[in-house]
């Protein structure tokens, strides 16, 4: 069985998604909804990372339960930079790019959960299936957030 590999891959991609959300949050500190919501939902990915690490042991993979984090200094720097350019229109384009990136990352994570759920079902791994059923909807919500935010923000950025 290669379930351990799939868990390891998800652990990596969820970590990546959490970091992408936090970095976007910092970069768009002056866009308050992105700043706060991206932080709120990064927590879902961090929670998934912990849960994957916990269940990984059952499948022979040793994973760090602590979500990877940006060094605080870098986050602070990004927030300061965001405030410095908050009165200019250029960050709008950067935000669209960031949201697009998050959407793609989340889509990847979503596929990973789907694969894991199917495999868990095939191998009759109840606990693993339950984990996928609990986490996957949150990934979809992260994706829909990026999509919805893109839809709401893009017109003003592109036509102004």
């Amino acid at each position: 069985m290669k379930l351990g590999l799939a868990i390891e891959e998800l652990h990596r991609s969820e970590n990546h998604l959490a970091r992408a959300l936090l970095a976007a949050s910092d970069r768009h500190k002056t866009d308050h909804e992105v700043f706060y919501v991206a932080r709120d939902i990064a927590r879902w990915s961090q929670d998934h990372v912990q849960a994957l690490a916990a269940i990984g042991a059952d499948y022979g993979v040793e994973l760090d339960a602590e979500p990877e984090d940006d060094p605080g200094m870098l986050a602070g720097l990004r927030q300061k930079a965001a405030e410095a350019v908050g009165r200019r229109p250029e960050p709008g384009m950067l935000m669209l790019a960031d949201l697009r990136h998050i959407h793609r990352e989340a889509a990847g994570v979503s596929l990973d959960w789907e694969l894991l759920a199917q495999a868990a079902q095939g191998a009759k791994q109840k606990k693993l299936l339950e984990l996928a059923q609990r986490c996957h909807p949150e990934t979809l919500r992260q994706m829909r957030w990026a999509n919805g935010k893109l839809k709401a923000s893009s017109t003003q950025v592109l036509v102004s």
Binding site: T30, D31, H32, E33, G86, R87, R88, P89, P91, G92, K151, A152, T155, Q156, V157, S160
Partner: peptide, 19 residues
Amino acid sequence: HWSPPTHAMEMFRYAEEGS
């Protein structure tokens, strides 16, 4: 009707960035 209406806080944000 391409997206939800711009809410007040977002309008002030757009005014802040100049659009």
